[in-house]
Design a protein around this nucleic acid. Structure first.
Length: 480
RNA sequence: GGGGCCAUGGUCUAGCCUGGUUAUGAUUCGAGGUUUGGGACUUCGCGACCCCGGUUCAAAUCCGGGUGGCCCCA
């Protein structure tokens, strides 16, 4: 397929995004149901790699995999009062024959999993219970949907943990955020701000919520994984009790964590891509190196053999590669694989045979370098690590530069409308601060993201809205 | 939640106002030839009016409803 790609990401992010999803064959959005898309092979392979990396991090931190049913009986769904209230408007219901209970398509799986937890957990010896599942979940979005960013079905991992003490649960919240950092940030290259959400914006049924906000090129923030301290709200509703070491019955302390992999894919695509198309991190690119045999009158057999040898070698070394034997002219192949975001292109022709060195094109810098054939796979690995570090560094810089300190509410408004993140003194993220947050929502059409959870930012001066003493440093931005 | 715009081959599109020919052009795709170190050229070929209803001798075109998509504002 011939591909043209010439929309500026900087100037027209929204169009750029739609275009790249289609051109790079990540999604086909023509399925015909609002908010539902088909994930095509190039996207699916990326998603799969991201899943594997994330799940192995889950397992390293002591979580066990499970798969729970997609359907939740209505009675179960309704057990936790705040949860029902928060999620009911977003639920897809399956109506059955008369007299049978309605079933919910899971919007999240607390109410599916916790009834089982109450059966599984009997004593302190059963704790901690750390379980995750890979799942697709469904939310009936009434607003406009955006592929991968806000859809009605998305692909995520959800972990649901139970502990004997509050302290352990709080520690888990920290561990979740560390996982977001070690995987989403360090591996996928998506920097984020861990924000403690205001009281009025926490997860329905949680004591508090930490949302990890990342940024997209248009300056809007997007909530990536959120982690919730559930306290004993759900354990009381679902009767999840254990007998402690002193033979007393207690309710378990719970946390849950929901990294949405399909949403991270949106961030990966958006943050790293450029005007020539995708730029995929080396670690998650479906193909890490494409080998292009150049035309030759005399040496075409030798060239072909060398390409095969390199490819086999890559396979042995667990580098995902293909040789592009298609009957296209080189230029067309070059543009195509660049658009697909393949980190490295290896050109092999007469020149390379003679020099015993490959010409390696690096996607993000668009530079060509010579690499001796005998060091090729090691060098690709090194270059891959450097390449990923560059992408991450660039994304970090982009996020940092977007945060602007503001002293006045006019300043906040101006910052937000300029596509940046405002940071300012704020009275309170408890319910008494809700009035001040209304300014952010109504006047700026933005979200009060909350306060930093990863560090203690000292508030000085007044709340920029009500002029009372500021108790916290809050952040606000336009949001997806 | 409010408002606006749009729907024609795989993709982008002309035609619609003022109803009537074999529905325009480009690109992709398939076959052939010349090419091949940054999107080549050329010949031939395949392929479309979102759905339901209405008006009419006649609907891509006019009217109503539905579905889907995009944008702006709250």
């Amino acid at each position: 397929m011939k591909v043209t790609f010439n929309i500026s990401k900087e100037r027209k992010f929204s169009e750029w995004y739609s275009e790249i999803l289609k051109k790079a064959e990540i999604l086909d959005i023509r399925y015909g149901v609002k908010g539902f898309v088909v994930i095509m092979p190039w996207g699916a392979r990326m998603l799969e790699k991201m899943y594997r990396i994330y799940e192995s991090a889950m397992q390293r931190t002591g979580h066990e995999p499970t798969f729970f049913p997609t359907l939740i009986p209505e009675d179960n769904f309704k057990l936790e009062a705040e949860h029902v209230e928060g999620f009911t408007p977003e639920v897809f219901w399956l109506e059955n024959k008369k007299g049978e209970e309605r079933l919910a398509l899971r919007p999240t799986s607390e109410t599916a999993m916790y009834q089982m937890y109450s059966l599984w957990i009997r004593s302190w010896r059963d704790l901690p219970l750390k379980i995750y599942q890979r799942a697709n979940v469904f939310r009936y979005e009434t607003k406009a949907t955006r592929p991968l960013i806000r859809s009605r079905e998305f692909y995520w991992i959800e972990s649901h943990n139970c502990f004997a003490t509050k302290e352990e649960a709080l520690k888990q919240v920290k561990e979740d955020i560390e996982m977001t950092d070690s995987v989403m940030h360090r591996v996928f290259g998506i920097p984020f701000l861990p924000m403690k959400r205001p009281e009025w914006d926490k997860f329905p049924g949680a004591e508090f919520t930490i949302g990890s906000d990342s940024i997209l090129p248009d300056g809007r923030v997007i909530q990536q994984p959120s982690t919730h301290m559930l306290g004993t709200h759900f354990s009381k509703a679902f009767n999840i009790k254990f007998v402690n070491e002193r033979e007393k019955e207690e309710f378990v302390w719970q946390t849950c964590y929901g990294p949405a992999i399909s949403r991270m894919m949106a961030s990966v695509i958006s943050l790293h891509g450029d005007d020539n198309g995708l730029v995929l991190p080396y670690t998650i690119a479906p193909i890490q190196a494409v080998i292009v045999p150049m035309h030759s009158e005399k040496k075409s057999n030798e060239i072909k053999k060398l390409c095969q040898k390199i490819s086999q070698n890559f396979f042995n070394e667990r580098i995902d590669s293909i040789v592009d034997y298609s009957k296209k002219r080189p230029g067309e192949k070059f543009f195509y694989w660049e658009m697909k975001g393949v980190p490295f292109r290896i050109e092999i022709g007469e020149e390379e045979l003679k020099a015993k060195a490959a010409t390696v094109f690096v996607r993000d810098t668009r530079e060509k370098i010579k690499v001796s054939l005998k060091d090729l796979f090691e060098e690709i690995r090194n270059l891959g690590a450097e390449y990923d570090a560059r992408l991450t560094g660039k994304a970090e810089e982009f996020l940092d530069r977007r945060i602007v300190d503001c002293d006045t509410k006019e300043g906040v408004k101006k910052t937000i409308s300029g596509g940046k993140i405002a940071r300012f003194g704020f009275c309170s993220i408890e319910n008494k601060g809700k009035k001040c947050a209304a300014f952010v929502e109504e006047e700026c059409s933005a979200r009060l993201m909350g306060v930093r959870y990863d560090k203690d930012e000292k508030a000085k001066g007044k709340c920029v809205f009500c002029n009372k003493e500021a108790s916290v440093v809050a952040y606000a931005a336009k949001s997806y």
